[in-house]
């Protein structure tokens, strides 16, 4: 579509033109209207659903006279969130620390192993099965062992979250490194590129979109890993993250605080996903198909 068509549509003015041109323009304007409605709906509809859900939740609690230690009203959850903020915020920081630490190690380990795998088929054949085994074994079943063998609680939590998060990065990056255009590989060979140059100037840039896809999955998974590990690690000590607060509040039947902590975990997950999506967009927007908007 040309820009003139769009300004024409947005102004709502039609230039005098021949009959077929006008017919095409009405069709174009209808398309623009649809697109504008879609753009508004994209934000308004989910917000509306949230508001309605909260309202329904509140009504259900009031009408059925459900006591707050079973299901608190949304207002009470909000109030608890504010009142307990000092405690919850400290816990949020602990959980975030574990999550980010695990994600960082997952990136280093995942990319490092992927590079190693693509440099040598023998290494890949030897170690890839172990990566798969680590991935398919549920973390809750490995975590207790880890906490037996690892003294430091922080280290244990990091290991658990890392195990969950590193696989998507490893497998996506490996795929990406192997997806470099074969013609470009030939070209690099003709120009006498060494192994390191091929990796740095060809394979790593080719792998970037794949890596970022894996990173977005790993971001969510490292939060899940951190929370699950906190559950397994149990109460006490330094590792008092959000999952620990949920456990603790559960023992004390402090249901509003459970909801508040849950809310914080969900929000954290959304923020992580959104920021990784943003990062991905910023890195790819100039050249990769996935980040380029096309007029169709």
């Amino acid at each position: 579509m040309t820009t003139t068509d769009e300004t024409l549509g947005q102004d709502g003015r039609l230039q005098p033109a021949t009959a077929p041109a006008i017919a095409a323009d009405t069709e174009e304007m209808a398309r623009l209207r649809r697109r504008r409605a879609e753009k508004i709906g994209q934000w308004v509809l989910p917000a509306l659903v949230v508001v309605l859900t909260i309202f329904a939740w509140d009504r259900i609690v009031v009408i059925n006279e459900i006591p707050h230690y079973i299901l608190p009203r949304p207002g009470l959850v909000a109030k608890t969130l504010i009142e307990d903020w000092p405690i919850l915020f400290d816990s949020l920081l602990v959980t975030l620390q574990i999550t980010m630490g695990a994600l960082a190690i997952a990136v280093l380990g995942g990319v490092g192993l992927a590079v190693l795998f693509t440099q040598s088929r023998w290494i890949e054949m030897s170690f890839f099965p172990y990566a798969v085994i680590l991935q398919v074994t549920p973390i809750v079943s490995i975590a207790p062992l880890i906490f037996i063998y690892v003294d430091s609680k922080i280290a244990g939590l990091l290991i658990c979250a890392w195990i969950v998060a590193f696989f998507p990065i490893l497998s996506n990056t490996t795929l990406g490194l192997n997806s470099a255009d074969h013609n470009l590989r030939d070209l690099f060979k003709v120009y006498g590129a060494n192994r390191w140059q091929r990796l740095r100037f060809l394979q790593l840039p080719s792998a970037l979109p794949y890596f970022l896809g894996g990173l977005r999955i790993a971001g969510g998974l490292s939060l899940i890993g951190a929370v699950v590990a906190e559950y397994v690690a149990g109460t006490g000590g330094i590792g008092s993250g959000l999952a620990f607060r949920i456990l603790e509040a559960g023992y004390r039947l402090n249901i509003p605080r459970m909801f508040a902590a849950l809310l914080l975990i969900a929000l954290t997950g959304i923020v992580i996903f959104a920021s990784l999506s943003f990062l991905s967009h910023m890195l790819l927007r100039k050249w990769h198909e996935s980040a380029i908007k096309r007029e169709t």
Binding site: N183, L184, D186, L187, Y191, A193, P205
Partner: peptide, 23 residues
């Protein structure tokens, strides 16, 4: 080659730089 075989992540000038860069 039959395909232009450019690096999509690099600008035109950076693509032309490639043979020198590899030196």
């Amino acid at each position: 080659l039959q395909e232009p075989t450019l690096m999509p992540w690099a600008t035109v000038a950076q693509n032309v730089w490639l043979p020198f860069r590899l030196q």
